[in-house]
Design a protein around this nucleic acid. Sequence first.
DNA 1: CTGAAAGCGCTTACAG
DNA 2: CTGAAAGCGCTTACAG
Lengths: 348, 348
Amino acid sequence: MARVTLQTIAEHVGVSRMTVSNAFSRPDQLSADLRARILDAAQELGYSGPDPAARALASGRTGVVGMVLTNSPRDAFTDEVAVGFVRAVAGSLGDAGYSLVLLHSSSHDGVVPARDVAMDGAIIYSCTPRTKAVTALTERRLPIVTVEGAPVTGMPSISLDNSAGAYEAAQHLSELGHSDIAIVVPTVDADDEPPSESVMATASSTAAGRLDGWIRALTEAGITPRIVGTPSLAIDEILKSRIGRMLDAAPTAVLAWSDLGALEVMEQARARGIRVPEDLSIVGFDDSPLAARVSPALTTVHQDIDAKGEAAAAALLAMMRNDPMPASQVLTTRLVTRDSTRPPAPVE
Amino acid sequence: MARVTLQTIAEHVGVSRMTVSNAFSRPDQLSADLRARILDAAQELGYSGPDPAARALASGRTGVVGMVLTNSPRDAFTDEVAVGFVRAVAGSLGDAGYSLVLLHSSSHDGVVPARDVAMDGAIIYSCTPRTKAVTALTERRLPIVTVEGAPVTGMPSISLDNSAGAYEAAQHLSELGHSDIAIVVPTVDADDEPPSESVMATASSTAAGRLDGWIRALTEAGITPRIVGTPSLAIDEILKSRIGRMLDAAPTAVLAWSDLGALEVMEQARARGIRVPEDLSIVGFDDSPLAARVSPALTTVHQDIDAKGEAAAAALLAMMRNDPMPASQVLTTRLVTRDSTRPPAPVE
DNA sequence: CTGAAAGCGCTTACAG
DNA sequence: CTGAAAGCGCTTACAG
């Protein structure tokens, strides 16, 4: 049997194809009675509504927004902050009738999702601008919002004031009296070294902002931190072993670039009998749901992930509506003092 | 300026539209030299590749797979198990060149994503069959895989042996010597009551499977549990207050339908000075990342979320390839004994 | 290896 | 409130 299309229904009911289309897409364009007859016929013939691909081509709208995440979704979804962001974006977008499609940044068999998936706009989350996916997306001249990364020319970006948050965290430690402080941060290839230009230049934009804030505050306090890093984006084996080495001659406090990183330090410290916070203070970043739950509860820099997701979605929706170009935004952070930090133990 | 299309490039290079199409989509159909010239021209004219919507209409393929989650993505992404599932599915699908689109189950302005988004197949995760989204999807006659829910007729389903897992959990408690046991489970409206048909009939399919397993094991041991539930899908205020009431006359052990539920019980118990596991044993379900991290580490029923996601993706990919219809699968569970369970304290 | 023909299923914009 | 015309940008299947 041939496929059922608008035409089939039109013939069955004895109206034009256009009227059937209106019955589905513009209910106000025809009488309620006629519309009911058309919908009944559609039901009867097993027609589930206008074909989305055809509709997208004819109307120029897909109802879909793309999101490219740092790496593959596989990596990104390991990160609570990224998950929270996706959640907030998908929620806000859904409220406006849009669906979110997760775009792989790699390609398979010549398929580059960022180039080949139909969409009305896109959000680029925490990506380096030179990713293939980002390039492909940019070339399409779609509305784009960048989050935590270098903005696409002429497009708005949403980011966090990473530097100010980190500054506050470092200041907190120095005010408590700490001066032997280590920084733990990925995307920076450093093994317990003092900060240097060459080491810091490798940082991702988020890491760079946080590094900047930590170093500023510590420099003002006359403190030179040690830096423990890894070239990768995540808590890999390199970072774990470097954290271990750092704890061999443990500082009195650690600044971690994320709560997960802070927990890794906390676990390794515990395994060695280093007490937190008595022997070692730890400050995280993000205030993920875990932070308040672990024991001791983690002092950390709070960021409002929901607000970030909503801001990104709102900016993109405005662009897709052809509203005036939305402004870029820098969201603020707030230090949350819990139980993982206290003054250093007096020297005996 | 007019939009740049295949035609534009074709005229510029002096070949047919078809040849330009081949340059992008079937590189083996033309000489490398000609292809390079075409691609250069495209680059120069700012053509980023064939329009995805037009390509989808003409070819009948979109490269996109839909997923409908229990409720809105907003709710689903609060659940670590759901997040892990999405992660595994998106990863497997991405490896095959497909992107995953998250489908809102509600509608906005007459837009029903499950009906209106172009896709090649869909995964229905943990939904009741009567959801509008599920109905809409089914009517489209797309390849569909159902996960943790009633299968769509003629389509494969992937699920967990919830009943066997729960059986093992309950058996563990009875073997430890517990006989005063409470069950905590959502989608069941019960306030510390003994099991009854009417109460249990409301359970979602996942909850129903787990309830079945718990009750079977306890019945065999001659134990009548108390049931603490809530009509909703999540840990809401009703459930929290009912847990509180249950702890007023605390049992010696609790079976929770999820690790998050188990943690809620653990926290409320701690707040009341009820020690876990000395005064109260707790068993969770899922073995989420949190389970091993909390203290005391949670005894729970492990399920392999990655395997579940991969199985769902593999089944759907097979259907989209027109392979023979894949078989439904029931995945197994495994009890992981950690520190939150022990024999009940001797009666003094 | 290249191209002319036919068509994918719908919507926009307009006329009545 | 309804419909005839034109077109969205591409690919499939075939002929040369």
